[in-house]
Design a protein around this nucleic acid. Sequence first.
DNA 1: TCGACTCGTTTGGCATACAATTTTTAACGA
DNA 2: TCGTTAAAAATTGTATGCCAAACGAGTCGA
Lengths: 240, 240
Amino acid sequence: MANSGSEPLVQADNEIRGHLPEPPNDNDLASRLLVSQVASKLRDMIIQDHLKPGTRIRERQLSELLNVSRTPLREAIRILVSERLVHSLPNRGAVVASPNMQEVRQLLEVLGTLEALGGQLAAEFASNERIEEILALHHEMLSAFYRKDKLAYFKLNQAIHKSIVAAGGNGVLVDTHAQLNARLYRIRYISNQRDDRWHEAVAQHEQIADALKARDAARLTTLMRDHIGHTWVKVNSVEA
Amino acid sequence: MANSGSEPLVQADNEIRGHLPEPPNDNDLASRLLVSQVASKLRDMIIQDHLKPGTRIRERQLSELLNVSRTPLREAIRILVSERLVHSLPNRGAVVASPNMQEVRQLLEVLGTLEALGGQLAAEFASNERIEEILALHHEMLSAFYRKDKLAYFKLNQAIHKSIVAAGGNGVLVDTHAQLNARLYRIRYISNQRDDRWHEAVAQHEQIADALKARDAARLTTLMRDHIGHTWVKVNSVEA
DNA sequence: TCGACTCGTTTGGCATACAATTTTTAACGA
DNA sequence: TCGTTAAAAATTGTATGCCAAACGAGTCGA
């Protein structure tokens, strides 16, 4: 371990623009491995925009910053490449991926389908406790909405979607959803900040909560899919 | 390059059990990198059952077998870990993953949803040429069926599903589908060999072909999803 | 029988070396 | 001034050796 003691892997970045919230860290079995830690750190840096899209990743420089050697860093980069969070250019290393509009649309299309499935499964199989937890998150989110606390709203929104998918009990679905979602995290955060259609989204969440409470699988399925469509409108209007 | 000249990365394995067909090799941009080649090789070895589930991957031994050093091999292993084709046990390396019944079911559930989406998109947006290509594959598959050529049938079946998904024009969907499908390739091949329900599957494929030809998106969507259900029955009956 | 210890093997990680390639810099000429 | 070419520097890709920590199989003793 090159990283002795309790000092953090990376110096605190005082110039964070939007101060993106920390994304979810999956408690991997192998997370004690340095590679996993570095991969998580990189993932966070990309997702939180500390490593901006298009940035070329210089191995030595970054390995010094992270206080690890090139070996685990390179292995971590390979992981992110296979997660499509960075691109690999032969002999020119890796650059942080920046999905274009077409790719965002495709991601949302797939995500919508996955969330629809998640909603269906959740309505059918989730325990009552699970559902109540989600409803609790929903009301927290409403609270954030009325407080106009965009950051809290964003985080709770993410948590709700993740929870619904998780409530379906399909681990493969959870993983796949998480991986695709990571590629949109940053762009969603940005579009969330400037969104002037909060009401619509909140209204949709109300319906989602109702359908979940009623365990109306069919309705929840279509609601989840349509809800993603709204996201596309948001993102598209910002980026266009 | 440790692998000079034209000799293959791995000696031909003369003791292949079922002689699984070579899986699709995606022409990655970075495929000239040794890491990518090794990863592909490993993927093939796992998918084709040359590396059996549960096998522990010994780095030095395997690096000698593949004629590469540990460095690219380890990076390749990380890639497969993130693809869930191998598990990583901290300090004990990696073992070839063997999905249990629950995981297979979850994989099929997600795959079914993705293929349903693929079918819908294909029916809506595919070019006529694309559709005709798929129909051609379909008839080839019928031919293999009547010849009782299980291997050809299997390969054509895979090709058809892949083509339908690809015809939708959603690259993210294609990638996601391929990744999940890889985890089922081996188990599907095995169950295909002992399947005594060919007729049902072929009948379903007939319907799928019809729906595609008619560009009936709604019908194709449900057909694709139900078709996967049939796969589950097949796999489950074999494994149970 | 069972627990503690030893020892060999393997992985995880670091450092270094070096060829191939890319990028940067500098020099040059129109 | 601007573009082009050549030399120099930097970076990646791969190999290799090294070492500490972890694990597993025996071994030994109670």
